[in-house]
């Protein structure tokens, strides 16, 4: 690192000194390389297990009362989320955060807004035990599933024996790993077809990179792989109309480390266009508003109507056809 640093200094200073201008920043930090990658499906997904997982995903026996299933919050028709500001669990329990999309979750560094669960398996366990989600336990769940010959048969077909905690978890995880939004117009654009997306979307993509959105929303999932503070440049919580809530503490809630206050997992944007409302508090209703809020609080910029429209067009081009 030191060697690298020394090598960069003359470059930085020559450019700054010669032009008084500052594009040196970008040459120093290698931003000219493409930060967004085509998303590819997870390999080794067994279709039989994934199909079983999908059945479990829609099974209301996951809740003691039989009133909610995974799919009630993670609805494929709603971009893998629920369209509500905050989630609803069993018995009408009201959640404290907005439901993140279930799509491309396998690409996440950790799960949930604050990385409460490190892996998909942990997330399944966490949701099962959380009284605001399912509020049950594995024994009760397996009891309920055990008597069902159809489920039993599917398990035997996939795993050679009936449902157990290990096989049920594996089936659900396999299904989740299969939920990858491949084949978007933008991926075709990245693949070399410039007409795959509209002119607006292309302009939006350029803005998205130039304005620094892509500093956090990068990689195959345009985020998900990084934690960042909400309100880097301006205090989001001070300006918000409603009172601070415990969920606003962010990852601090997990780590107890003051540096993690307001730190959240950067959400992936592949399904952003279809998963309003936005942010952990679900306080922003439209994609356009969300873009402006991000620009102001994270980047210190104010976008005009055209710019917002272009970035929104870009984000819509990320949705699979």
């Amino acid at each position: 690192m030191a060697v690298q640093g020394v090598a960069l200094v003359p470059l930085v200073f020559v450019v700054v000194a010669a032009t008084g201008c500052c594009l040196a920043a970008s040459s120093a930090i290698a931003m000219d390389r493409i930060p967004i990658r085509t998303i590819s499906p997870a390999d080794d997904v067994s279709p039989v297990k994934a199909d079983l997982g999908r059945r479990l995903f829609t099974d209301r026996r996951f809740s003691d009362a039989g009133d909610v299933a995974c799919v009630d919050c993670h609805d494929p028709m709603q971009g893998g989320a629920d369209g509500r500001p905050t989630f609803r669990g069993t018995g009408g329990a009201v959640g404290d955060v907005n439901t993140p999309t279930v799509y491309n979750a396998a690409y996440n560094l950790a799960q949930g807004w604050i990385g409460r669960a490190e892996t998909l398996r942990d997330q399944i366990d966490d949701h099962l035990a959380d009284p605001r989600v399912f509020g049950t336990d594995w024994d009760a769940l397996l009891d309920r599933l055990g008597g069902d010959p159809a489920i039993d048969g599917a398990f035997v077909a996939a795993y050679g024996n009936g449902p157990t905690r290990a096989t049920a978890t594996d089936a659900l995880e396999t299904y989740l790993r299969s939920l990858v939004t491949t084949g978007s117009p933008f991926d075709r654009f990245l693949g070399g077809d410039p007409t795959a997306i509209s002119e607006d979307a292309r302009a939006g993509y350029a803005l998205f990179r130039a304005y620094g959105c892509a500093a956090c929303h990068q990689g195959a999932n345009l985020g998900g792989n990084l934690y960042q503070v909400l309100g880097v440049i301006r205090d989001y919580f001070a300006d918000r109309s409603h009172d601070p809530a415990p969920a606003d503490l962010g990852r601090y809630d997990m780590t107890g480390d003051a540096r993690d206050r307001h730190l959240f997992r950067v959400p992936g944007l592949r399904r952003a266009a279809s998963t309003a409302p936005y942010f952990h508090d679900g306080s922003i209703a439209t994609l356009e508003e969300a873009i402006q809020v991000m620009a102001v609080y994270q980047l210190g910029r104010h976008l005009d109507g055209d710019q917002i429209r272009q970035i929104a067009a870009f984000l819509r081009s990320l949705e699979p056809d």
């Binding site: 920043a25 930090i29 304005y211 620094g212 730190l263 994270q298 980047l299 910029r301």
Partner: peptide
Amino acid sequence: ATYSSTIVNSLRYLGTATD
């Protein structure tokens, strides 16, 4: 990773906005 992305973002801003 968090701090690096913060810095990259702000450097980028400084780079384009200072002029």
